[in-house]
Every structure is written in C-alpha cells, then in structure tokens.
Amino acid sequence: MMSKTLFKKNALIATLGSVLLGGQAMATLPQNATSIEIPVQHIQLTQEWDKVFPKSDKVEHRKVTFKNRYGITLAGDLYMPKNAQGKLPAIAVSGPFGAVKEQSSGLYAQHLAERGFVTLAFDGSYTGESSGLPRNMASPEINTEDFSAAVDFLGLQDFVNPDEIGILGICGWGGFALNAAIADTRVKAVAVSTMYDMTRVMANGYEIKLDPKGQYDRVAGLDIEGRNKMKQALNAQRWVDAQNGTFALTPKDNHLPSQEKLTDDTPLFVKEYSNYYKTERGYHPRSINSTSGWTQTAPLAFINMPILQRAAELKAPALVVHGEKAHSRYFGEEAFNALGSKNKELYIVPSANHTDLYDDVANKIPYDKFEAFFKANLK
C-alpha cells in the first residue's frame, strides 16, 4: 500500500488546477478543499548480483540509497576495497546516458575500488532503480545535481575523507560531471570518459557526418530553422501527452535499433551502440538503451540550456579520456579546450571507438591513467 503525502493548499495546491504524476491525472481540487493526496513512489532494489560484468573478490559491495536536492531518491552500488581501514578517497561514477549502474559505471567503479578508492555507481533520477516520475525522463539540471547528491552521500560516510572526493562521468554523464564540478567546489577532481555534451548534441544535432563506413567529417549541424522544426514537433507531442495523461516514449527501435534491424546504411556509431546495448555484451533489462527509449519530450529541457557555458571557471583538476576513432571525440576535445583548470589533461586512447571505453577492460579503458589521476589529486 502506497503511503500518502499531504500538501497544504496555501503552500502549493492553490497554484494547481490538476496534478499529473506518473501518467495518472489527479482530480481538480474541489472549491473548498484544503489539501490533496499525492502518492509517494516506492522503489524496489534488486539484491542479487545482476551486473553485466563479473563480481570481483577484491571488493565489498552493497546497495545504498540517498536523496538529491529535489527530493528524488537515488539508488547506488557502493564498492569498497576489502579490508580497507581509515578514511579513504572516494569517487562517484555515472553514465552512459540511457545506461544503468549495472553496466559501464559499475564496471568502472568496481575496478577503481580494487585500486583503493571507495566508489559509488548510481542511477540518475527517473532511471534504473532510482525514483522519479515519469520514468525515462532526463534533465540537464537534475542530472547535474545527481552528481552533487552523490558527493553529499559519500562525504557523510565515516570511512570517506570528505576532502578527497572526485567524480567520473561516462558518455553523456561526462558532460554532467564536468558541469557538476564547475558548480560544486567540494569536487576535488573530475574525470570523463568518451564524453558527450548532451545539451549540445540535442540542440545542434551531430556536428559531424556519420556514414556507415566510419567517416566522420565535420559539418554544420542543425541551424536555427532545423532547431525550430524540432521544437515544433516536440511541443506538438506535449499536446498529445497532456491529452492522454501519459508520457509517450520514443519507440525502442527508433531510439536504438536492435541487431536484426541494422542495415548497410546504418551509421557505424549506431551499430557500435547496438552491439553493446542490444547484445549479451551489455544488455540490461533496466537500461533505457537496451529496452525502450526516453520520453519523447525529454530533449526540450536540453535545447536551451548549455551545461558547459561556465567551463572556463572550473578550478578542479580534470582528466578527459577519449577514443581516437570515436565519433564523439570532438565533444571531449572541445570541452577540454574550454576548461579553465590549470591542472588538466587530454588522453586519447589509440584505435578506440566510443563504446570500446564502455567495457574493453583488457585493451582500451586506461585504468592506470584514471588511478594515477585520482591518487595524485585526491589527497
């Protein structure tokens, strides 16, 4: 049975004609009503090991929950070196965009825990095992906040040194990690791997040509007219959602095609994503990229909100890691050039494509580089 939360009319409800929560429209308040009941979402945590990577015998693992500044409960996997003593440096990890902590972020977190750090891989708001309604929603502001909430949680643990906390973002969460580090002075070091700037790609489209053979030539991306057409389509969908009382998802094969839907004309980078999310290599039933799609109107928040506009103000040490052959390499290189950190490094992994840095532990993910960077700067 769901518990109920009461909101007093003079605090909130006077501004509401009706409430839409989780796809169910609540009735309009009667004229003399003083309160309205809104269901509180409960989350279920899976206790068995259900990652796409094997469990290490060198670390201890447990599930944790914590809240962000917007009251959303986030779920995470906490990894600690076995037999650790004293207060340790800690790293919060999340990403890629549309993935869950059972995929790449957990893999990174577990490996870094083997190397002496307390690590926290977490699901962003509205995704995975974290709460937030509607599901499969994204927000550049809230997802940036999620990293700072992870710092809150880590800094309050008695086995963590609160002055030695870093963050690491993968793919689209790389942009959120940099954005969080710009605003949150408690972040002592920030690293990103195979990063995207999700506000840039949603507003501009890809600023490179993505052909099936892997030729990635720079192009202009979306112009003002193209962006206006996109906004018209997204806002038309808002009418549909408002009428239906639900939030329509992007059809899963439109979001990311399954293996059998790939053709000779499918861009190479899309094939790379499908080869990770839609196969045993990286498939997870809670992952948006593996199973469904984002809410169709999710891009609206990203189009007008560039997350890295204050990049020159970053003070924390920064490490930007990208693949030499990655279609997304320009995001990392241009973000790196904009960062104001006096201590910053761009590391290009030879021959690596975008998704090689998701899970290629043996040949591509430079864990030695990440370890050295965090040990040098979390002290």
Rank of each mutant, 00 (worst) to 15 (best):
Y347N: 05
G323N: 06
F159Q: 01
S274C: 05
P251M: 01
V201W: 09
A312K: 11
I167S: 11
T185H: 15
S292H: 11
V219N: 14
I72T: 14
T194L: 04
D197Q: 02
Y330N: 04
A84D: 02
A113W: 09
K344H: 09
S131H: 05
L357Q: 07
G174Q: 05
V270S: 11
E333K: 04
G124A: 10
N228P: 02
N275G: 15
T73K: 10
Y347M: 00
E129D: 03
M305Y: 15
P317F: 14
G205D: 09
L120V: 03
P96G: 14
S328H: 05
W294N: 04
A316Y: 13
L249Y: 13
S130D: 09
L256P: 00
C171M: 03
M80I: 06
E334K: 02
V59W: 13
S35H: 15
V201Q: 08
G76P: 01
N353M: 03
D217K: 11
R238F: 07
K344D: 09
L300Y: 04
V19K: 04
V93W: 00
D217S: 11
F159V: 00
A90W: 14
A242K: 01
Y70M: 05
K252A: 10
L234T: 04
R62Y: 06
S292M: 09
I38W: 15
T185M: 07
Y126H: 13
E260Q: 10
G128D: 11
M198L: 11
T250S: 09
L133A: 09
M230K: 13
S341E: 07
K9E: 14
E280F: 14
D57F: 08
A90V: 09
E145Y: 12
T119Y: 01
A335V: 07
Q232D: 13
A372C: 08
P39R: 00
Y277L: 05
S18N: 12
E280Y: 14
S351G: 06
Y206N: 08
P54I: 02
D360G: 08
V321I: 15
Y276C: 06
N377D: 09
K261I: 00
I13L: 15
A109G: 14
L222H: 06
I165W: 15
K55G: 02
A298I: 03
K209P: 00
K9Q: 12
G205V: 03
E225H: 12
E272G: 11
G245T: 04
D152N: 12
Y206C: 06
E141C: 02
L314E: 05
H42I: 00
K58V: 00
T291A: 07
S287Q: 05
Q215M: 05
E334P: 02
V361C: 05
P350G: 06
M1L: 09
V219A: 06
K375S: 13
L74Y: 14
A177P: 14
K344T: 05
F147Y: 15
D50R: 01
